[in-house]
């Protein structure tokens, strides 16, 4: 790999309470434009890994380079500037329920707005138009002024995607984006991620539960088990033996169609 976009080097995370070792000396790198899928059982460290990359969680040891910058060493102010270019979507959507769809989408611009304008809620006209355009893109133009607690799960996740799009991200972190959705909706949401990856050239790192989804959308898969890397390769390389190694002897593969 000539010029890795993201390098994770010996990343370790220890949670103080109960001394849980969430990640152990994890190292891998990601090239620009990849669609990397992280798989593994619940508690294998997927969420912790994604949150270490944008430092929602502080790593205990190790380094993370993003586009040549060591993000683990950045001051809070400089970290915020880096975060502007990292979109993130969540399993539970993490929207502000009492706010409208467009209100939620606009918060994606907060990193670009001077503090006083943010406090007054005075978003530039260009941002508002961009928000409507992004809602249009995820097929929710007509729901722009509806409170998000009135929306369905799939619609709410699409609001989350529109919020991430507002950031003009170079990297998208998706923490189990479809785990709370039914299979049909899952594919619709995954297709938006695929579109961002292919059309806008956004590097995507998504953690997924279903191997079938990982195979369908990922250009590369890494697998975690107890915070350690147990697989790194193309989707086609996961055979039955590898599957049992990642998920345990008793696991059966479930298809999502």
């Amino acid at each position: 790999m000539a010029n890795p976009y993201l390098v994770v080097d010996n990343l370790t995370k220890v949670y103080e309470r109960g001394q849980v070792l969430a990640l152990r000396d994890l190292s891998f790198s990601v090239a620009k434009g990849e669609f990397l899928v992280v798989i593994g059982l619940s508690g294998s460290g997927k969420s912790t890994l994604l949150r270490c990359i944008n430092r929602l969680i502080e790593p205990t040891r190790g380094r993370i380079w993003l586009d040549g910058t060591d993000v683990t060493r950045l001051s809070p102010a400089r970290m915020r500037r880096v975060r502007r270019k990292i979109g993130m979507i969540f399993q539970q959507f993490n929207l502000v329920d009492r706010s409208t769809a467009i209100g939620n989408v606009l918060t994606g611009r907060l990193g670009y707005l001077p503090g006083w304008r943010a406090l007054l809620g005075w978003f530039p006209k260009a941002d508002r138009e961009k928000a409507l355009a992004n809602l249009e893109r995820v097929g929710l133009r007509d729901k722009a002024y509806v409170r998000v607690d009135q929306l369905s799960g799939g619609q709410r996740q699409r609001v989350g995607i529109a919020r991430a799009l507002m950031q003009d991200p170079d990297l998208l972190l998706a923490d189990e984006p479809v785990s709370a959705l039914d299979p049909a909706t899952s594919h619709s949401v995954m297709q938006y991620l695929e579109q961002m990856n292919r059309q806008d050239g956004v590097t995507v790192i998504a953690s997924l539960h279903f191997l079938s989804l990982a195979r369908r959308y990922g250009t590369r898969i890494i697998a975690l088990k107890d915070g350690q890397l147990v697989f790194d390769g193309p989707p086609t390389a996961i055979d039955n033996a590898k599957f049992k190694e990642i998920y345990g002897e008793d696991a059966e593969e479930v298809e999502v169609r």
Partner: peptide
């Protein structure tokens, strides 16, 4: 309060006051 929005708004690169204004305040006003 739900920690989710705090996490999400922090992830957009917003400052502390913006997180307060957009993630916490909407949840507590009513």
């Amino acid at each position: 309060i739900d920690q989710g929005p705090i996490e999400a708004i922090t992830a957009t690169g917003a400052g502390r006051l913006s997180v307060l204004r957009y993630a916490i305040v909407p949840q507590i006003v009513n």
